[in-house]
């Protein structure tokens, strides 16, 4: 079967800055594929190139075997795009929006009306059907936005950070909706900043950092690369953080990451039992601990393990200083 997405060496340059710098991506049909990365990593830019919204500066991309560069018009018939910000018309009601998008995609008046009613029902928006979009909550807008992408039932759906800014309950609903799409035969390519979202939804995950792919695999592959769990230590007030970091490194053989604002240390654990060894060692040298927890790894830790730097904003492409921002020594100084 043809892959839903097959891209090689994708490049997008804005002046000297390469927002996407040679990414290969293969998404088998019928899967949820997650693209994980911090702000400014190039996720949205990549999606926009694949959706014909930005010209491709280098490399090749095919969706279901159709060349994105050569046949943009066909591509637009195959892909439904839902962006980070709701792209529906503020001046129209929910029904009017869906009917307009239906008409624009060649549905008859009757069909666009029926499709609009069907989608509003499916997304739990019947009651808001004739309300102005300006009265919609963030979650309702997202749902309407997704509904608008599904009018012609495209086989491939791009979701750009579908749950950023949503409350946990709405987020869960969105996840269910995304799973339903795949159960229906769609392929979903989604970008996210949340490891748990990728973990929950995606069959495969690609991690993008500064325009390049730094890792790809199943969620399990990815997490095992950073250790089974993470030790989180909050030091007691006045404790020497640098000294504590040295102790942790001596026991675990890995330098812990220091969170500057709260005096917290975190370090990957191959085995959760090792946490006890760390605590004993800290006690022996007289360093106080306020709280201890052993958690599953977060996106930050995945990033630290994969790229050697944290997953902070990367909006400033010229700033190599970003690399050292959370250097333990600098924080302690």
């Amino acid at each position: 079967m043809t892959n839903a997405v097959h891209a090689t060496g994708l490049v997008k340059a804005f002046g000297d800055f390469r927002a996407v710098d040679g990414i290969d991506l293969t998404v088998p049909a019928g899967q949820i594929f997650g693209v994980l990365g911090p702000n400014g990593a190039g996720k949205t830019t990549m999606l926009k190139m694949l959706a014909t919204l930005l010209p491709i500066d280098g490399g090749e991309a095919h969706l279901f075997g159709v060349d994105v560069r050569r046949e943009p018009h066909r591509i637009r018939q195959l892909v439904g795009v839902t962006g980070q910000y709701a792209s529906v018309d503020e001046n129209l009601t929910a029904t009017e929006n869906l009917r307009m998008f239906g008409r624009l995609q060649g549905l008859s008046r009757a069909d666009s009306r029926a499709t609009a009613a069907d989608l509003l029902g499916r997304f739990g928006l019947e009651e808001a059907a004739d309300r102005a979009i300006s009265q919609f909550s963030g979650g309702m807008r997202r749902r309407l936005d997704l509904a608008a992408s599904l009018i012609k039932r495209p086989p491939l759906i791009f979701l750009d950070e579908p749950t950023t800014g949503l409350d946990p309950r709405t987020r869960g609903q969105m996840w269910d909706t995304i799973r339903d799409l795949v159960a229906d035969g769609c392929t979903v390519l989604l970008t996210t900043q949340y490891l748990d979202e990728a973990d929950q939804l995606a069959d495969r995950i690609a991690v993008i950092d500064r325009g390049s792919k730094v890792a790809e695999g199943t969620p399990e592959d990815l997490k095992s690369s950073v250790g089974a769990s993470t030790l989180q230590l909050r030091l007691a007030d006045g404790t020497d953080r640098v000294h504590a970091a040295e102790v942790v490194e001596r026991i675990l053989g890995v330098a812990p990451a220091l969170t500057p604002e709260s005096g917290r240390l975190s370090a990957p654990l191959a085995d959760a039992d090792r946490a006890a060894d760390v605590l004993i060692a800290l006690r022996q040298v007289g360093l106080g601990v306020q709280s201890v927890s052993v958690d599953r790894p977060t996106l930050d830790e995945v990033f630290l393990a994969l790229t050697g730097h944290d997953a902070g904003d990367q909006n400033d492409p010229a700033g190599p200083a970003g690399d050292d921002r959370h250097d333990p020594l600098e924080v302690a100084a």
Binding site: G65, Q77, P155, D184, G185
Partner: peptide, 17 residues
């Protein structure tokens, strides 16, 4: 979950203009 017919990528590609 929605019960309408499943999406068929090959048919979708074939029907593009």
């Amino acid at each position: 979950a929605p019960t309408h017919p499943t999406v068929d990528p090959d048919a979708a590609v074939a029907s593009t203009r």
